[in-house]
Design a protein around this nucleic acid. Structure first.
Lengths: 154, 154
DNA sequence: TGAATTATGTATCAGAAGCTACATTTATTT
DNA sequence: AAATAAATGTAGCTTCTGATACATAATTCA
């Protein structure tokens, strides 16, 4: 047999009754959910700033999904305390949502600026940052910032 | 209405009837599926090299999920031509799987090396690379490589 | 104002990834 | 070889993200 020892990863499951959904997800699943949340709150913040309010259609267009998907995801975000909304009304960020959006935006801009500073073309930097921003730890982000603050480097 | 004429991101939705499932997925979904595939083939390659063969249990342990999840995902990978396997047998990479694994490994190592070279601590670099590697474009990867080949920089 | 258009909502489906519980097969030990 | 342990498989549930089709509310405009 290839493996002799036993289950290292056969739990983390808390058999103590139903829990809040989010807490029970695996690392990967939770991260993915967080990424989506970040994309949404960023888009909502952007739309609120640039157009006064964030509507479902605009989110759908911006995120490249149908309004149905937006609808359901917004419901999840509301459930999780990131946004508030009412039927047929615009979507607003809560304090928590605003904070997440701000962090995401800052991270995004730092990543883009860093990539630009080492010679990545703007369009590529934008595209890559889109995916990378969700996976950069605070430590690495600090390294990026430090390098950005020493423009003679690289 | 909040949106009068905006048209930032027109989706790619193809109103021309039912398509093959995979092609119809949104960008995000497809990317996520690819990430998982990359993680699996990398793990399979690693296990095959280090232990002679890749078994479900070992994959489960390594990837931090249950053997059931591994089972189903491996079935998908087989369906998509990345691996071959038979009931109660080990999992083997196809040519396609090997290629994907090799690309992933190379990308992973480049990202780690790059992060290390700009001063990110090893452990952090490893963890961040885990997430970042799936989102780095060939162009950016080339920039990383170029910088790595000029050790005096930074 | 009433009709047409646009936006939003609801019902219903699919696929992926996760889980637990239980069944079966293979490997190990006695 | 039989019993035990470990690995693998299967059934069935959940959540999330996507979709289409259709229904309803809100806005715009003739």
């Amino acid at each position: 047999m290839a493996t002799t020892k036993r289950n290292l990863a056969d739990k983390a499951h808390t058999r103590d009754g139903p829990r809040h959904q989010a807490e029970n997800l695996s690392q990967t699943r939770r991260e993915h959910a967080t990424e989506i949340a970040e994309d949404y709150v960023e888009a909502i913040a952007y739309l609120s700033a640039s157009m006064g309010e964030a509507r479902v259609v605009d989110l759908a267009r911006r995120l490249g999904v149908t309004h149905v998907t937006v609808n359901r995801t917004v419901a999840r975000l509301q459930r999780d305390g990131y946004v508030t909304t009412q039927p047929y009304r615009a979507i607003f960020l809560t304090e928590r949502g605003r904070k997440l959006a701000e962090e995401s935006r800052e991270r995004h801009e730092t990543v883009v600026a860093f990539l630009r500073s080492i010679g990545v073309p703007e369009r590529v930097a934008e595209l890559d940052a889109e995916g990378i921003e969700h996976h950069v730890s605070p430590e690495t982000l600090n390294v990026f910032r430090r390098i950005l603050s020493h423009p003679q480097k690289i």
